[in-house]
C-alpha cells in the first residue's frame, strides 16, 4: 500500500489516466457527445434531470450492491424485495395506516428481507447466488400473495411527490436522494475502518477471519443495508407509478449488477469504488435515455449495454495479452 502511494506522488496524472474510473468517465462523455449529435435539441438541462427519473431507482440500488459484491456476496433478490416493499406499503395504506408509517413499514420490510438473506448466507454457508435466487422467487411471490390480481390505487398526492415524479423542482427529489446516498456510501467505503474491512473480507475471506475480522457480521450488515435500499427503491418506484403493484421492478437485479460490474467492481470481491459505480450508473442511464429518445426499443438497448459490459471485461484480458506479446518480442530480440 505505501509503495503504491509513493508511485502516485510521482505520477498522479498518469496514474489517474490508467484507472478504470477514468476510462468509463471518458465513455460517459462519449455517450453525452453522441447523444448530443444524434438529437441536439432534446438534450437540454431540464430533460437531463428529467431523464434521471427513469433510472434513479436502479441507480440507488447499485451503491449498496457495490459494497456487497466487494465483500464477496451477491444479492439477486433485490428487485423482488423492491416489489415486496412497495406492495406491503400499499397494503398497509389500504388497511388505514397513515402513509408515513406505511412507508416506514415498507423500509422495515426491505431491511428484514435483506437480513434474512444475510442470515441464511452467513449461518448456513450457502453460496449467496443460490440463496438469493430462491429468495428472489419467494419475495416476488409474497407480493402476489398479498395483492393477487389487484393493485392498490389512490395513494395520496403527497406520497407521489417522493418519487419526485412530476414536481416542478429543478432537480428531482429522487436524484437528490441518489447523490446523498452516493456521498454517504462513498464515505463509508473509502474513508472509514468499516470500509477497509469490506475490502479485506472480499479480498481474502480466510485471512480476514484468521486476523480477527468478523466476516459474517460485516456481510450480514451489508445484506441488511442492501435490503433496506432495495425497499427504498421499491417505494420510490411505487410513488412514481402512483400505485402499488406486485409486478414492478422486473429484471432490475440484472440491470443493477451490470452497472456495478461496468463500474469496475470485481465480481469475486475485493475491488471497486463508489465513483466508478456512480459514473457507470449515469452512463447506462443516459445510454438508455439517448436511445429511447430515438425510439429504440428497450430490449434492443440491452444489446448495447450487454455489449458494453463484455467489452469492458475483455479489455484487461486483451491488454495483458498485448503486454505479454510485447514483452515476448522484446525478450526475443
Amino acid at each position: 500500500m505505501p509503495n503504491e502511494r509513493e508511485k502516485k506522488k510521482r505520477l498522479p496524472l498518469a496514474d489517474m489516466l490508467k484507472t478504470w474510473e477514468f476510462t468509463i468517465f471518458m465513455l460517459l462523455i462519449a455517450v453525452f457527445v453522441i447523444n448530443l449529435i444524434l438529437s441536439p435539441d432534446l438534450f437540454r438541462v431540464a430533460n437531463l434531470f428529467d431523464a434521471t427519473l427513469t433510472f434513479t431507482e436502479k441507480s440507488i440500488l447499485t451503491l449498496p450492491m457495490a459494497l456487497l459484491i466487494i465483500s464477496g456476496v451477491i444479492d439477486i433478490s433485490v428487485a423482488s424485495i423492491s416489489a415486496m416493499s412497495g406492495v406491503i406499503l400499499g397494503v398497509c395504506y389500504k388497511a388505514g395506516m397513515a402513509i408515513g408509517y406505511a412507508t416506514v413499514i415498507g423500509l422495515a420490510v426491505g431491511l428484514s428481507a435483506g437480513l434474512l438473506n444475510g442470515v441464511i448466507i452467513t449461518r448456513l454457508k450457502i453460496p449467496s447466488i443460490v440463496v438469493t435466487l430462491a429468495m428472489m422467487l419467494f419475495y416476488r411471490g409474497v407480493g402476489y400473495i398479498l395483492l393477487g390480481d389487484t393493485a392498490v390505487r389512490d395513494l395520496p398526492q403527497r406520497f407521489g411527490l417522493l418519487g419526485g415524479a412530476y414536481s416542478s423542482t429543478f432537480i428531482p427529489i429522487q436524484f437528490m436522494i441518489f447523490i446523498l446516498l452516493a456521498v454517504i456510501f462513498g464515505f463509508l467505503l473509502h474513508r472509514t475502518r468499516f470500509g477497509r474491512l469490506i475490502y479485506i473480507v472480499g479480498n481474502n475471506e480466510n485471512t480476514a477471519r484468521y486476523s480477527g475480522v468478523r466476516v459474517d457480521r460485516i456481510r450480514l450488515i451489508l445484506c441488511g443495508v442492501t435490503g433496506l435500499i432495495a425497499g427504498l427503491s421499491g417505494i420510490l418506484l411505487t410513488s412514481r407509478i402512483g400505485s402499488a403493484r406486485p409486478d414492478i421492478a422486473q429484471g432490475n437485479e440484472m440491470a443493477v449488477i451490470t452497472i456495478c460490474l461496468l463500474g469496475g467492481v470485481y465480481i469475486f470481491g475485493g475491488k471497486g469504488s463508489i465513483i466508478g459505480v456512480v459514473i457507470a450508473a449515469l452512463m447506462i442511464g443516459y445510454v438508455h435515455y439517448g436511445l429511447s429518445i430515438l425510439n429504440v426499443q428497450e430490449q434492443v438497448i440491452r444489446i448495447f449495454t450487454g455489449g458494453l459490459l463484455i467489452i469492458a471485461l475483455l479489455i484487461p484480458t486483451i491488454a495483458s495479452r498485448f503486454r505479454a506479446s510485447v514483452k515476448h518480442r522484446r525478450g526475443g530480440s
Binding site: 440484472m254 430490449q299 440491452r302 444489446i303 450487454g306 471485461l313 484480458t317
Partner: peptide, 20 residues
C-alpha cells in the same frame, strides 16, 4: 477471453434477447 461466466452470460443474455 477469461471473462467470468456469470458476467459473460449475463451480458449475452441481454444481447441475445435484444437480437430476438
Amino acid at each position: 477471453g477469461k471473462v467470468h461466466p456469470l458476467i459473460t452470460t449475463l451480458a449475452t443474455m441481454s444481447i441475445y434477447r435484444g437480437l430476438v
